[in-house]
Amino acid sequence: MSGLKLALAAVAVLGLSACGTNPWNDDLNSGGGSAGAGADALDPASPAYFQQTVGDRVLFAVDQSNLSPAAQATLQGQAQWLARNSDYVVTIEGHADEQGTREYNLGLGAKRANAAREYLISQGVAGSRIKVVSFGKERPLEICSDETCYSKNRRAVTVLAGGLTG
């Protein structure tokens, strides 16, 4: 993938950002990484703030599980939020795009989720608060078969789960 192609893909993403909403958004993950309308009105201790303002997901390059600087910045934000909101535990869900065989992609998603987990631990989050699970290519968010969709599907999503103290 050349730099030029990447740049074009990025433009395409921006151009299409309004469409492609998906019906699979009945859970905590529906927000997308960056702020939507009304983000400043959110309670900073709320899961919605975590999802939309902090950013609940990081993205990966094709067949890779290393964290980009942008991904590390998002995870730093997550670690800070988790430090302030210490009664949450999380499950990190690792995902792959459809360009790969099913079982390999389960392994790849696990590597991605684990990379995010290790980074959160390095930022002071207790390992006991973080589970990981891989969905491989089974749960795509975006459904087109090209890089604009694939780049959003190669993700690790930090899902807030039941509070430690109830």
């Binding site: 079982e103 392994g107 590597k111 684990n114 987990r117």
Partner: peptide, 27 residues
């Protein structure tokens, strides 16, 4: 709990299963 296991296959003897298990991101 929390350990991923997948890709199970029977051995020809029908008594053993070989499969993948993931721990610490490693499968």
């Amino acid at each position: 709990d929390g350990i991923m296991s997948f890709a199970p296959r029977f051995a020809p003897d029908g008594r053993t299963v070989v499969y993948s298990q993931t721990q610490g991101g490693n499968t």
